[in-house]
Simulated scan of single mutants.
Amino acid sequence: MVVRLMVLLLIMAGTNLHAQEYFEKQYAGVWQRNLSYSKAVAEAMPEVNYDFRPAEGAMSFQEQWLHVADNISMLTSRITGDRKNFYRKDDATGFNKADVLAILDQANAHVLDLIRNASGSLLNEEIEFGGVSMTKENIFYLLRDHQAHHRAQCLVYLRMKGVSAPGYVGW
């Protein structure tokens, strides 16, 4: 019985170590590919269609990307304790495509910097988010998931406007 318990504990410790090792060695590359794909999708839409929204009440193409930047601001503050704003919301109505791309680049670069500098102790810190207890590492996965969700909506917008979508990059 004691031997089984020891084996189980070793397996569990190894699994946690493997997950942390994955984050430290590979997640920066995963995020880099994520942000490159998002940028390609954002660049594909002609500027004249940045205000396109498929239905009343839906976010425009531009608003989708600004929402991604806002989410990065909010979620990274759960990691760092400091909320970094990437633009002034009052200025958003005057943004052009280049402005939105620059904001998206800045927000995604901020996440990449946090990933590259995250310590194991920071990643393992427990926080409460949305009524759920999780580690700060999980926030990095939420950032990617949220961006993928809105990028997918933007891909649909491209198709609706007859714009060829960039090929999928997901590895």
Rank of each mutant, 00 (worst) to 15 (best):
L142I: 10
R33I: 07
G29E: 02
F86C: 01
D90Y: 06
L104K: 14
E63S: 08
I79C: 02
K84M: 09
Q153Y: 00
K84I: 05
I11E: 12
M1Y: 11
D99K: 12
N124H: 05
L66G: 00
M74T: 14
A152D: 03
S164T: 12
Q106D: 15
K84L: 02
D91E: 15
N117I: 02
T15I: 10
T15Q: 11
R4S: 10
N71A: 14
N49C: 13
A40I: 00
E56Q: 14
R83M: 08
R53E: 08
Y37L: 03
L143M: 03
K39R: 13
S119T: 13
A44H: 05
Y22R: 10
L66R: 01
G81Q: 11
K89S: 15
Q147F: 03
S133N: 11
K161Q: 15
M45S: 04
M160S: 09
Y37W: 07
E63M: 12
V111L: 03
V163K: 09
T76F: 06
A69W: 09
S60W: 10
S36P: 02
S77N: 08
H149W: 07
E137V: 05
A165I: 07
T93A: 15
M6Q: 14
A107P: 11
N108V: 03
R144V: 05
Q20M: 12
L122T: 08
F61W: 03
I11R: 08
V3P: 05
E126C: 09
E128S: 15
L112C: 12
F129W: 12
E47F: 04
K84H: 07
G131V: 05
L122G: 02
V169E: 04
R88N: 13
E125I: 01
R88K: 09
G167C: 08
D51H: 09
A152L: 05
Q64T: 06
G81L: 11
L114T: 04
K25R: 08
S121L: 06
G120D: 00
G81Y: 14
R116I: 07
A102K: 09
D51C: 11
A98T: 09
N49W: 13
V41G: 00
W171H: 14
Y168C: 06
A19T: 12
Y37V: 01
D91T: 05
Q26H: 12
W31Y: 13
I79R: 01
Y37G: 06
L123V: 09
T80N: 01
A40L: 02
A58R: 14
P166F: 01
A165N: 11
L101W: 11
L143Y: 03
M6L: 14
R88G: 06
R116T: 13
V169G: 05
Q32T: 14
S73V: 02
G170Q: 08
T93V: 13
E126D: 14
H146S: 00
F95R: 03
M59Q: 14
Y141K: 07
I115C: 04
W31R: 09
G94F: 02
V100K: 00
R151V: 01
